[in-house]
Computed example of a mutant assay.
Amino acid sequence: MSEKFDQFCRAHPKATERDAVYRAWCDAVEDGANPARLVVLAQRYGATPEVQRGYAKKAQNWLRDGAWREETAYPARSAPASIDDRAKFWAERINDGKFVAASSFGADVATRMMELALVTGDQLRAIGIKP
């Protein structure tokens, strides 16, 4: 067994039946799968909402289904927006007079908007947020 296979087994959320997984791994690699890509895709698969809710396929079935064949399989998640980005986004909406619910963002974003002088306390109070 290879180092990449071991990495795959650590990355995939349901790689428990190692012999069956290894057979499916070998078949996938013989069929053109790049071992390093399989590891990355297994990591991404483990982060999908479906898997996070507890609905993961067994690794051997995942390999046999060939999800790794598709170029867009399990795209990398983008980084969450920074607090400054969120502050700028909501401040722009407030300044444009668009509807913004008081529950749209938390106190941290409201504070940051004021620190960056993007909005005033009066503007925040007008939408129901206490600065």
Rank of each mutant, 00 (worst) to 15 (best):
M1P: 04
M1A: 14
S2F: 05
E3P: 05
K4H: 13
K4D: 15
K4Q: 15
F5T: 06
Q7P: 03
F8C: 05
A11W: 05
A11N: 06
H12I: 04
A15H: 03
A15S: 14
E17I: 12
R18G: 05
R18S: 12
R18H: 14
D19P: 07
D19M: 13
D19T: 15
A20W: 06
V21H: 00
V21D: 12
R23T: 15
W25M: 07
D27E: 15
A28D: 02
V29R: 02
G32T: 08
G32P: 06
A33K: 03
N34S: 14
N34G: 11
P35A: 11
A36Y: 09
V39A: 01
L41M: 11
A42V: 08
R44V: 06
Y45H: 09
Y45W: 09
Y45T: 06
Y45S: 06
G46M: 09
G46Q: 11
A47N: 14
A47M: 14
A47P: 00
P49D: 15
P49R: 14
P49V: 13
E50I: 14
V51I: 09
V51H: 01
V51A: 05
V51D: 02
Q52V: 15
Q52F: 06
Q52R: 15
R53V: 08
G54V: 10
G54Q: 10
A56L: 01
K57N: 10
Q60G: 10
N61F: 14
W62K: 01
L63E: 04
R64K: 14
R64Y: 07
D65I: 09
G66M: 04
G66N: 10
A67C: 10
W68F: 02
R69W: 04
E70S: 15
A73Y: 08
P75I: 08
P80I: 09
A81N: 08
A81M: 13
A81V: 11
I83Q: 08
D85P: 00
D85N: 09
D85W: 07
R86A: 12
A87D: 02
A87H: 01
K88R: 15
K88I: 13
K88G: 11
F89H: 08
W90S: 01
A91D: 03
A91P: 03
R93M: 11
I94G: 00
N95T: 10
K98S: 07
F99H: 11
V100A: 02
V100R: 01
A102T: 12
G106R: 05
A107C: 03
D108T: 13
V109F: 00
A110D: 10
A110V: 03
T111I: 10
R112D: 01
R112G: 00
M113S: 02
M114V: 12
E115F: 04
E115P: 01
L116F: 06
A117S: 15
L118Q: 04
L118N: 04
V119S: 01
T120I: 07
G121Y: 05
G121V: 10
G121C: 05
D122Y: 02
Q123P: 02
Q123T: 05
L124C: 02
A126L: 04
A126I: 07
I127T: 02
I127K: 01
I127F: 02
I127Q: 00
I129G: 00
P131V: 14
P131D: 12
